[in-house]
C-alpha cells in the first residue's frame, strides 16, 4: 500500500534536468575553447541564479528554509542508515540538501571563474584557470556521488527518487517513517 505526495513544482524539475544537460554538455561534450562552451556556461549561471531566487519565493518544497538541515538532522539521517531504519523526507533529505548546496556553490564558482577568464584583468592568470578546473573536477565527483546516493537511497527506502524529480510525485511505501 503506497502513499503518494505531490512534492516538486515544475520549475524545480525543469531546473534540475536543464542543469544536468548543461553541465554534461560543458564538462564532457563541448570544446572548452569554443564559443558554445561560454554561452552554455552563462545559461547555467542564469539557471542557478533563478533557482536561488526561487528558493526564497517558491513553494514550500523549493524553499531553502524548508530543507536547510541542522547538525542533529544530518546525524539523524546517517544514524538511520547505520541502523538500517527506513525513513524518508518529503522534500530534500538533510544529506541531499547538503549535496545541493555543494553543487550550487561549486557551479557558481565554476561560472564566475569561467567569466573571469574572459576578462582583460584575469586573462592568462593561472589561479583563475586552476580554480575553474579544480571545481569542475570537484563538481564531477560530487555528481557521481549524488547519482550513487540517489540510487542507494531509492533502493533503501523504496521511494523512486529520480522518478519523483520527473513527475513531481513521491510514492512512499506504507511502513516507511515520514520525517517532517
Amino acid at each position: 500500500m503506497m502513499k503518494k505526495f505531490k512534492i516538486w513544482d515544475p520549475f524545480v524539475r525543469i531546473f534540475h534536468w536543464s542543469l544536468v544537460i548543461g553541465f554534461t554538455a560543458n564538462a564532457l561534450i563541448l570544446d572548452e575553447e569554443g564559443q558554445a562552451h561560454i554561452w552554455v556556461g552563462y545559461a547555467i549561471v542564469a539557471l542557478i541564479v533563478a533557482r536561488i531566487l526561487w528558493g526564497f519565493v517558491g513553494p514550500r518544497s523549493a524553499r531553502f528554509a524548508a530543507f536547510t538541515p541542522n547538525r542533529k538532522q544530518v546525524i539523524g539521517q546517517i544514524s538511520d542508515i547505520a541502523t538500517r531504519r527506513r525513513s524518508t523526507h518529503l522534500g530534500h533529505s538533510p544529506l541531499g540538501a547538503l549535496m545541493i548546496f555543494n553543487i550550487i556553490g561549486s557551479i557558481l564558482i565554476i561560472g564566475v571563474t569561467g567569466y573571469m577568464m574572459t576578462t582583460n584583468a584575469f586573462w592568462g592568470v593561472e589561479w583563475v584557470e586552476e580554480a575553474h578546473e579544480i571545481f569542475v573536477g570537484w563538481a564531477e565527483i560530487s555528481v557521481v556521488l549524488h547519482i550513487a546516493a540517489v540510487v542507494i537511497e531509492s533502493l533503501r527506502t523504496g521511494v523512486n527518487l529520480p522518478r519523483a524529480m520527473v513527475t513531481g510525485v513521491k510514492t512512499v511505501p506504507a511502513d516507511v517513517i515520514l520525517k517532517e
Binding site: T118, N120, W123, G124, V125, E126
Partner: peptide
C-alpha cells in the same frame, strides 16, 4: 600573462593594446 604547453606547442596568454 602565462606560458604553458598545449597540443605539442608552447601556448602563451598575453595582452597588447587592450586586446587578449
Amino acid at each position: 600573462r602565462s606560458v604553458k604547453t598545449e597540443d605539442g606547442m608552447y601556448e602563451v596568454y598575453a595582452l597588447k593594446d587592450g586586446k587578449r
